[in-house]
Write a protein that binds this DNA or RNA. Structure first.
Length: 541
DNA sequence: TTAGGGTTAG
């Protein structure tokens, strides 16, 4: 079909790029169908591209446009292959790729096709197919394309063909950091941190991403100090560098370091993003650092950042763990786009507060809102029932979880269940339930039952459980300590002496308990029997 | 006429 000269500047086409939602795009689509514009492949391609940038989660609308294009060209096929390659179902790229190769003799694969399909091969680790496609690339005379070469290096490495990847890298004409990163990123993601370091030291060129791969590689292998050493000598740090280091500290529980680094970040020209704020809030939650948490909340408001998704969850969690349940509820109520995690964090918050009835009410509201509870929801709701002594409600919830939602109970659910039954004094029933569990998983739940024995003065069962725990976890002191305390509470000093002697003989020492509290904006961490050991700095307000 | 490689996170 011939295209008018003014076609590409048609106002309706610029509307495809202006659309910010599927429904807006569908209006443009309807207009195109009515006027026949949709029959122009170029117009359809603009619509298709706009649809791929808007629909991140579901490709059904993109697919429906693709199947209705009358005369698809390479661009149309490539856009569809790319959309699948970056989606949660990269394997579907192959179907479109085969259609392009064999169903349409008018259209040919080009350099874009190969970068996209090779990306799909890497995502699904299909080295055999990748190698075949590499053959087609060479046959088509595209073996010198820089983008294709870099994607090939990444694809081979991702599929475990490290020698082939390295060979391609060594044969490159010019040094490009992206080519080296293609291999480096795979080493760091797979946890081959020493290989990554060797490669990094060997690299003739590095860019900020190369450094970021090393920082996140060390962090993901639990080597936070090594990550910090790399971070400290970086000349250029971007938001990814800061977030990688901050999340490393957050993941390892070094919450004080998170706050220090966040403060350092404010002296440079890098603005925190949602990821930074989520990690800082989780550090505040872990430390009970309410004023720092409030500062982050104020920062969010000041900068007009929308409270949704991870950020909403983190804020609710921070306020709950810092003891401000009212504030957590207020934040929760103001979240416009709640997801299942937002609900889970609110229910967990109510559970921590011992507000069992309120947690159950929240659970029902969530169901009425059309949300499907997850494993995590039930852990919170069961522990809420357990903490608040709502035994029959808890048992009903457990039954509901299995029968209505088809969720297989995990060790955490059994832990809550044993706690619930134990509170009712049905200790032998709880014991029977536990003996059905696999040995590998059960120690923590046995400990929970041991606590119930103490509340119901069942020395015989306590001895039985303690013996069980000694067998399961000979190095763990928790069982010994609980039994010893139990004997002490009954004035059975011989029992106490016996257990303590057994601990000494095995060279075991109880780790001191610790707790944290914020006083006048400073977080103090107390070890049992000691003074203050941590004082994270206050943030600029 | 449109587009491409490596990218931190509850």
């Amino acid at each position: 079909m011939s295209v008018p000269a003014s076609f590409s500047s048609s106002p309706i086409l610029s509307l495809t790029e202006a659309a910010t939602s599927i429904s807006q795009l569908q209006q443009v689509h309807a207009y195109m169908l009515k006027t026949g514009l949709f029959h122009h492949t170029f117009a359809a391609s603009r619509l298709l591209t706009a649809a791929t940038t808007i629909s991140h989660h579901s490709l059904s609308y993109v697919e429906s446009i693709f199947t209705h294009v009358h005369r698809p060209n390479s661009y149309i096929y490539n856009t569809m292959i790319h959309a699948y390659a970056t989606s949660e179902t990269p394997g579907l790229s192959f179907i479109v790729f085969l259609k392009l190769l064999y169903e349409n003799s008018q259209v040919y694969a080009d350099k874009y096709t190969f970068t996209f399909i090779l990306k799909a091969c890497a995502r699904v680790c299909r080295g055999k197919e990748g190698k075949q496609i590499h053959g087609i690339v060479l046959k088509n005379g595209l073996g010198d394309d820089e983008y294709i070469k870099n994607t090939l290096i990444h694809m081979y490495a991702k599929c475990g063909c490290f020698e082939v990847a390295r060979n391609l890298l060594d044969r490159l004409q010019k040094d490009d950091a992206v080519s080296w990163n293609a291999l480096l990123s795979v080493y760091t993601q797979m946890g081959f941190v020493e290989l990554a370091r060797e490669l990094f030291d060997e690299m003739p060129v590095r860019n900020v991403e190369s450094w970021n791969f090393m920082v996140s590689g060390y962090v993901n292998s639990g080597l936070v100090e090594e990550a910090r050493d790399v971070f400290d000598v970086m000349l250029v740090k971007d938001i990814v560098s800061w977030n990688a280091m901050i999340s490393g500290y957050a993941k390892s529980g070094a919450f004080g370091e998170v706050l220090v680094l966040f403060e350092d970040m404010q002296t440079v020209e890098v603005r925190p993003d949602n990821c930074t704020l989520v990690n800082v809030l989780s550090a505040c939650a872990g430390l009970g650092a309410l004023s720092q948490g409030k500062w982050v909340h104020a920062y969010i408001d000041r900068n007009g950042i929308e409270v949704e998704g991870f950020l909403a969850t983190a804020l609710v969690d921070m306020y709950s763990k810092c003891g401000c349940i009212e504030k957590a509820l207020e934040v929760f109520d103001n979240v416009l786009k709640k997801d299942i995690s937002t609900w889970n964090s609110m229910i967990a918050g109510l559970s921590i507060h011992g507000s069992g009835h309120h947690a159950l009410k929240m659970f029902n509201q969530m169901i009425s809102g059309g949300f499907t509870p997850t494993e995590v929801t039930f852990i919170s709701i069961l522990s809420a029932c357990s903490r608040a002594g709502l035994v029959s409600e808890g048992l009903m919830m457990f039954d509901h979880m299995v029968r209505v939602y088809g969720i297989q109970p995990t060790i955490e659910h059994y832990g809550c269940l044993v706690d619930l039954i134990g509170r009712r004094g049905l200790l032998n029933e709880a014991k029977e339930l536990l003996n059905k569990l696999t040995v590998k998983e059960s120690p923590i739940v046995w400990q929970s039952l041991l606590a119930s024995c103490r509340n119901h003065d069942d020395v015989e069962l306590a001895e039985y459980i303690a013996r069980k725990l000694f067998e399961l976890e000979p190095k763990d002191t928790a069982g010994y300590v609980q039994l010893s305390n139990f004997h002490a509470s009954l004035g059975r000093w011989n029992g106490v002496m016996e257990v303590r002697t057994r601990m000494r003989e095995k060279g075991l020492k109880k780790e001191p308990g610790c707790s944290m509290i914020e006083i006048d904006g400073t977080v103090h961490e107390f070890l049992a029997g000691e003074g203050v050991i941590v004082e994270p700095p206050r943030l600029k307000v």
